[in-house]
Design a protein around this nucleic acid. Structure first.
Length: 504
RNA sequence: GGUAUCGUGGCCGAGUGGCUAGGCAGAGGUCUGCAAAACCUCGUACAGCGGUUCGACUCCGCUCGAUACCUCCA
């Protein structure tokens, strides 16, 4: 557990050695989805990024409590007077109960995350289930003197907070600049200062989602849920807080302010931010209307998509970029990922068929030179070490994958009898794939109908007929069978051990 | 305008002060009845201009360009 894991901390803009506050326990909080729309590719990135973090920390032996919230209330439409809750607005349009909408899209979110093999977090709290905690936190901030009440709404006093603790440290903003640069919005007259934000908003009569509070019937402000729920489940101070880069300001900045104002100390040790997925160089997002939902990816049902892409292809595509880089979507890039993933799993399949060579190597007597290229310490072990080094360097999954492809190259060479492998190497190789492909990267094979007894039996019959044709050098018949199967998406390959087939 | 990040070969995408990323696509070769797969070889990328240095794609400055945030957004 005494690892050399380095994490890029947005707070310091450097990679820092990861040292949990209370080892072996690790507390991690990640901003989850607002459930008022179908999950799109952008939602997949943080989910997979922090799943990778979750999986790796567990692999290192930490006991991780991972919280990812569901925002089913709390984000204001804007900061204006009539600021209405997004969930409520959508609900009115569709004439549905707000919670029905939230439930529907929550279910959709879970469904698609499961398909991409994203682990379920330890706790997935809902904002609507933590109104009391949010009210209590608002009260605490009021008591500390960093908030004020106007007409039943409660606002955070950013200026006062700034004087004592400094506001803007995460995002590198100065409050003076912000005051002069904040756009003039309608109906800001309640706030003492334009940079102040709402902790509690009084609900207008038409506002559906509302709860009683000491100040008014209303609803919590849009940064409050994360502060309240992270504190509830992880304590006043915890290790990692993650989320999309687009949440850095003002959301995370305000979270820091709220928690610090309430408790007098900084709550988060490591701030992690995943970068955006872009499409034609632009952020894929709701407001731009250029997003593609996960459902559309999986079905191929979208005008920008030339084909469907499987959940694992999406996962692999995301893991092929480091989480802090922007990732540009294109059909070409996705197809490259699809083929690469196929090659990886073909390699794993081949690995299970390998037999170790039995000859006694000269280096087994002790002396080792650079030419001893078949001992564990000289070919497989460096790859394993390379994977750990990459993960320890701020979760550099693309480098892990590069190491895995090198391993696949070795597997194929051994299978082609161009290289040999010792029993120890073979075991280490299997360990490498089990650990990194399945456990840490969380990839899994998407098997189709293979394994179905009926299909297997039919295929055996068909291929034995084709084999007879081949033995008779009846190439037209042989090729026709292969061609007909190809039309049914069944690929037949002739190897020296006979024909093998698989369904695409 | 402010803040931040970034500009790598046909595409995606790592990385580094002097030493191979990797995947996809492309070219040639081996194997194969053919095909597929696999393996081998190849292309001399690091926006531009200066500076530091024995040496920079990597450090510094400037220019150009891109993106994100400053309003809900993963």
């Amino acid at each position: 557990m005494n690892s050399n894991l380095f994490i890029y901390n947005t707070l310091s803009r450097t990679k820092e050695l990861f040292e949990p506050l209370k080892p072996p326990f690790v507390g991690m909080y990640v901003c989850g989805p607002t459930v008022y729309g179908d999950p799109h590719l952008g939602h997949a990135r943080p989910a997979i990024t922090f799943d990778l973090v979750f999986r790796y920390l567990k692999h290192l032996g930490y006991k991780v409590r991972y919280i990812r919230n569901i925002t089913d209330v709390g984000h204001l439409e804007n900061d204006e007077d009539e600021g209405e809750d997004k969930i409520a607005k959508k609900a009115r349009v569709e004439q549905l109960e707000p919670m029905e909408v939230a439930q529907y899209y929550s279910d959709r979110y879970f469904l698609f995350m499961d398909k991409m093999n994203v682990s379920r977090p330890s706790i997935e709290p809902r904002a609507s289930g933590h109104i009391i905690e949010q009210i209590l936190m608002t009260q605490k901030i009021l008591d500390a003197g960093f908030a004020y009440v106007v007409n039943g709404s409660v606002y955070f006093d950013v200026n006062k907070y700034n004087e004592k603790y400094g506001y803007g440290r995460l995002s590198g903003r100065k409050i003076e600049d912000m005051v002069s640069n904040t756009r003039k919005l309608e109906g800001q007259d309640e706030k003492m200062n334009s940079v102040d934000f709402a902790l509690w908003k009084k609900a207008q009569p038409e506002h559906i989602m509302r709860w009683p509070s000491p100040w008014s019937d209303g609803f919590p402000g849009w940064h409050l849920e994360c502060s309240a729920m992270s504190t509830k489940y992880l304590g006043e101070q915890f290790d990692i807080h993650g989320g999309g880069l687009d949440l850095l300001f003002p959301h995370h900045e305000s979270e820091i302010a709220q928690s610090t104002a309430a408790t007098g100390k900084a709550s988060v040790k490591y701030w992690m931010h995943n970068n955006m997925i872009t499409i034609e160089g632009q952020k894929m997002g709701k407001s731009l209307g250029n997003f593609i939902t996960l459902d559309e990816f999986f079905t191929g049902n979208h005008k920008s998509l030339t084909q469907a892409y499987s959940p694992m292809t999406i996962r692999f595509f995301i893991l092929q970029a480091q989480y802090r880089s922007t990732l540009d979507f294109s059909n070409e890039a996705l197809q490259a990922a699809e083929k690469g993933l196929k090659k990886l799993f073909a390699g794993i399949d081949t690995l299970s068929k390998l037999v170790p060579s039995v000859y006694l190597k000269i280096e087994d007597r002790g002396q080792r030179t650079d030419k001893d290229f078949h001992s564990p310490s000289s070919i497989i072990h460096p790859l394993l070490q390379g994977c750990y080094n990459a993960m320890n360097d701020d979760f550099n999954s693309p480098v892990v994958i590069a190491n895995l492809f090198e391993a696949v190259r070795i597997i194929n060479s051994v299978y082609d009898k161009k290289e040999s492998i010792s029993a120890e190497d073979l075991e280490e190789m299997k360990n490498l794939f089990n650990t990194f492909v399945f456990e840490i990267l969380g990839l899994k094979e998407e098997k189709t109908d293979s394994g179905n007894e009926l299909v297997d039996g039919l295929m055996e019959t068909i291929l034995s007929l084709r084999q007879r044709a081949r033995e008779n050098k009846d190439w037209p018949a042989s090729d026709q069978i292969r061609g007909d199967l190809e039309k049914m998406k069944i690929t037949v390959k002739d190897t020296k051990d006979g024909a093998v087939w698989n369904i695409d």
